[in-house]
């Protein structure tokens, strides 16, 4: 019991994720700045931002719903942190692996997106409401290709548990090449889930001033930023598990493998946001349904055929 508590609270739980979230945000911003010919922030920057925001006044606007305004920032953090229970982080085994945990992770990440919509809705400000509805339209476009992409390794491994899928793929690394298209689709969908350029449509600073988060200040904003950072780590860890063969059982090796694989994926996401302009919402919907979904379906079909004829 104590060991598990330590795992949940310290490593690879809350404390580790918090520190790594700060590091990944710095890494993202620094790489972004360097690619733009700038120097970029110092290493402690995300940490300073977090503390400063925590110590700031938390204004509840008169028009907002106070109960939800207080609850939602904690809610989104709870949703993304819960995923660590069934996600193998820096090791080959999750804390509590069970059959079907891949769907639980997908559900928790979706719930986090819904919280963003609710935040916009209950802030009750024109910008946040438009941002919230945009978040929902965006969600129904990227969720489907994302789930199809995740389905591919699950079909190949014949399991619904991330731990087992990872173990199976690690034993058969040739399969990783087959599901390369699924990895690309999942990366694009993850970028949309994290609401980053070119898919930062719900937040679009120059159009709707930060969208659902426009009315948030102080603590709420800090928790939302932290949750988004952790969501990014959870997302790339999930992809590293499903598409890059997971992490070694050896603690030291596993940790190194974790850092290398997640940072490579984060770097790809950063590069994506450096070289692209924001798309319009209807362009995103068309792109997801006309391009990503057919490709994902073909990928799933290939996985089914391989599973049926070759692997059995």
């Amino acid at each position: 019991m104590t060991a598990e508590l330590v795992q949940i609270l310290l490593f690879p739980g809350f404390v580790f994720l918090f520190a790594y979230a700060m590091f990944v945000e710095w890494f993202d911003r620094k790489a972004y700045a360097l690619m733009q010919n700038r120097v970029g922030p110092p290493w402690f920057q995300p940490f300073a931002d977090f503390i400063k925001l925590m110590a700031k006044e938390y204004i509840i606007p008169r028009r907002a719903n106070p109960l939800f305004f207080l609850l939602l920032p904690t809610g989104i953090l709870a949703f993304v942190l819960t995923t660590i229970v069934c996600l193998p982080i820096a090791s080959n085994r999750a804390l509590y692996p069970f059959e079907g945990d891949i769907l639980v992770v997908a559900f928790l990440l979706t719930a986090a997106s819904i919280v963003i919509f609710l935040m916009g809705w209950f802030s009750n400000n024109p910008f946040t409401i438009v941002g919230g509805t945009r978040a929902i339209s965006q969600m129904i476009s990227y969720e489907v290709p994302l789930l199809f992409a995740i389905l591919t390794p699950a079909i190949l491994a014949g399991s619904w548990s991330i731990t087992e899928i990872t173990a199976y793929l690690r034993a058969n690394p040739i399969l990783l090449i087959i599901q390369l298209p699924a990895l690309i689709i999942a990366l694009i969908a993850l970028q949309a889930k994290l609401e980053r350029v070119p898919f930062d449509i719900p937040e679009a600073e120059t159009e709707i001033v930060g969208g659902p988060l426009a009315e948030l200040s102080g603590r709420g904003l800090a928790l939302f930023h932290l949750a988004t950072d952790i969501e990014m780590i959870v997302g790339v860890t999930l992809l590293a598990n499903l598409f890059l063969g997971g992490f070694s059982a050896n603690p030291a090796l596993g940790l190194i493998e974790f850092f290398v694989k997640t940072l490579i994926l984060v770097f790809i996401l950063t590069a994506m946001r450096t070289v692209m302009a924001r798309v319009r919402i209807e362009q995103l919907v068309l792109f997801c349904w006309h391009k990503l979904v057919p490709i994902a379906l073909v990928q799933v079909l290939i996985a089914v055929l391989i599973k049926g004829w070759w692997l059995t």
């Binding site: 733009q36 350029v197 070119p198 692209m276 302009a277 924001r278």
Partner: peptide, 16 residues
């Protein structure tokens, strides 16, 4: 214009 459409890299480059 780059900044308006979320393309900050263009903003940085042209201002440089």
């Amino acid at each position: 214009a780059g900044h308006e459409i979320g393309f900050d890299t263009l903003f940085m480059y042209s201002w440089r």
